[in-house]
C-alpha cells in the first residue's frame, strides 16, 4: 500500500495543468501521453508475435 502511495506522489496533481502548444495544436500532457501509449500499443500489436501463430501455420 505504501508503495502505491509513493507512486501517486511521483506526479503532482496540485496547481495548473501542463499543456503542449504548437501552432494550432493545443493539448494536455496527460492526453499526449495517452496518444503516445496508443501508438506504442498499436505498433506492438503489429510486430509482437502472437502466441501459437507458428504452430497454427504448420497445422494448416
Amino acid at each position: 500500500m505504501a508503495f502505491l502511495w509513493s507512486l501517486a506522489s511521483l506526479i503532482s496533481l496540485e496547481g495548473k495543468g501542463h499543456y503542449i502548444h504548437w501552432h494550432f495544436i493545443y493539448l494536455s500532457v496527460a492526453n499526449f501521453i495517452v496518444i503516445l501509449l496508443m501508438v506504442l500499443v498499436f505498433l506492438a500489436a503489429l510486430f509482437v508475435p502472437f502466441p501459437g501463430r507458428a504452430s497454427r501455420k504448420e497445422s494448416k
Binding site: 498499436f42 500489436a45 503489429l46 509482437v48 502472437f50 501459437g52 501463430r53 497454427r56 494448416k60
Partner: peptide
C-alpha cells in the same frame, strides 16, 4: 482463419 492469429485482431 490463420491470419486472425495476430494481436491487432484482439482489440
Amino acid at each position: 482463419p490463420a491470419y486472425v492469429a495476430s494481436w491487432i485482431y484482439v482489440f
